[in-house]
C-alpha cells in the first residue's frame, strides 16, 4: 500500500502522510480488516522476554521486554524503622520512572501523572492482593525491618507500561536474596560476605499476580486491542486491565474511559487474560 485515495476527491497522498494527518482514521482502516498496522491480529500480543538478575548490585532484579517496551526493575533492600501501625512488618515501595529517555512523550522533572498512576496501581496490587507476607521482612519487632525499594526504570516506551512493569516487579521479587541480619541491643549487623544458602534467604510470595491490558478502540461494537502499543494507546479512548494470580483468581479488574461496556465484553477479557497470563507464567518459571 503506497498511496491512499481520499474518497470524495482525486487528491492522493502516501500512507505515511495519512497516518500522520488522521491517525485514528488510518487505524480504523486496518481494524476494519481485522489487523493492526504492526501486523498483529486484534487479539495478538507482542513477543515478550524476561531476564532475571540483570543488576548485580541489587538484591533482586529483572529486565522485561514487551515488543518495543523495555523496563528494568531493581529491588534494593535497606534496614529501616517499622511504621507505627505495623511494628512487625517491613515494607515494599514500588516506583516507576518514565523519563524523557524512553519516549519524547515524557518531560523531565517531577514524575508524570502516568508514572504516578502506574506506581500506585502496582502498590495496590502488592498490598490489596496480599502478595508478600510482610512479616518475613521483620528483623526485630518494633525496632528494625527490611524496606524494599522496587524501582522500575523504563528504557524504551511503546505502550502497555503497567503489564511490563508488573511483570518486572514480580520477576524481581522472586529472585530477591536478603542476608540474614543479626540484631543485638539496638544494632543491626548485615555481614558483607558472599551470599550463600545459609547466610541469606528468599522471599516467599503468597501469589504472583500478572496483568493483561486491552485497549478499547471506538467502533460501534467496541473493538478490543490486546497489548496496545503507544500509537494504539493514543487513538483508543479506554482500556480494560485484568490481573490474575496463578490459581486464576482475580486480583484486579480496571475499566476506564471510552463509553460503556457490556458484562459479556468484560468476561471475554477475563477469558483471554487467563490464556495470556498462563503464557507469561511459563516465562517466569
Amino acid at each position: 500500500m503506497t498511496s491512499v485515495a481520499a474518497t470524495s476527491s482525486t487528491f492522493t497522498f502516501s500512507a505515511a502522510a495519512f497516518q500522520r494527518l488522521h491517525p485514528a482514521e488510518y487505524f480504523r482502516k486496518f481494524v476494519s480488516q481485522g489487523v493492526r498496522p504492526d501486523g498483529r491480529l486484534l487479539s495478538g500480543f507482542r513477543p515478550t522476554t524476561v531476564h532475571k538478575s540483570v543488576v548485580s548490585t541489587a538484591n533482586g532484579s529483572s529486565m522485561v521486554r514487551v515488543g518495543g517496551t523495555t523496563v528494568v526493575c531493581g529491588i534494593k533492600a535497606e534496614v529501616a524503622e517499622p511504621t507505627l501501625e505495623a511494628q512487625d512488618k517491613g515494607y515494599i515501595v514500588p516506583n516507576v520512572e518514565l523519563s524523557p529517555m524512553c519516549s519524547s512523550a515524557f518531560k523531565a522533572g517531577p514524575p508524570s501523572e502516568q508514572a504516578q498512576v502506574v506506581s500506585d496501581a502496582i502498590d495496590r496490587i502488592l498490598k490489596d492482593s496480599d502478595v508478600v507476607d510482610l512479616e518475613q521482612l521483620c528483623i526485630e519487632k518494633g525496632r528494625a525491618v527490611w524496606a524494599l525499594w522496587a524501582d522500575v526504570v523504563c528504557i524504551s516506551y511503546d505502550g502497555n507500561i503497567l503489564d511490563a512493569a508488573l511483570l518486572a516487579v514480580m520477576t524481581a521479587l522472586t529472585n530477591v536474596r536478603l542476608r540474614k541480619p543479626t540484631y543485638d541491643e539496638g544494632v543491626v549487623t548485615v555481614s558483607g560476605e558472599a551470599l550463600t544458602e545459609e547466610n541469606s534467604f528468599s522471599l516467599t510470595l503468597t501469589r504472583t499476580p500478572l496483568s493483561t491490558t486491552f485497549a478499547i478502540f471506538d467502533t460501534p461494537n467496541n473493538t478490543l486491542l490486546a497489548d496496545p502499543n503507544s500509537a494504539e494507546e493514543n487513538v483508543s479512548l479506554g482500556r480494560i486491565t485484568v490481573t490474575l494470580d496463578e490459581k486464576n483468581q482475580l486480583c484486579g479488574v480496571h475499566k476506564v474511559g471510552s463509553g460503556s461496556c457490556s458484562p459479556a465484553l468484560i468476561k471475554s477479557c477475563i477469558e483471554r487474560a487467563k490464556e495470556r497470563t498462563q503464557e507469561l507464567r511459563s516465562l517466569l518459571a
Binding site: D130, C251, G252, G257, C261, S262
Partner: peptide, 30 residues
Amino acid sequence: DDVVMEDGDRVEGHVLFCESTGVFTEAEYF
C-alpha cells in the same frame, strides 16, 4: 451482552468505569 451466572441469574447493565482490587473470583466479581 449479559453474563449468565451459574445459579441462573443474569448480569446486565453497561459499565462505564470499574475498579476492583483485592482477591476475588469471577463469580464474586459479577
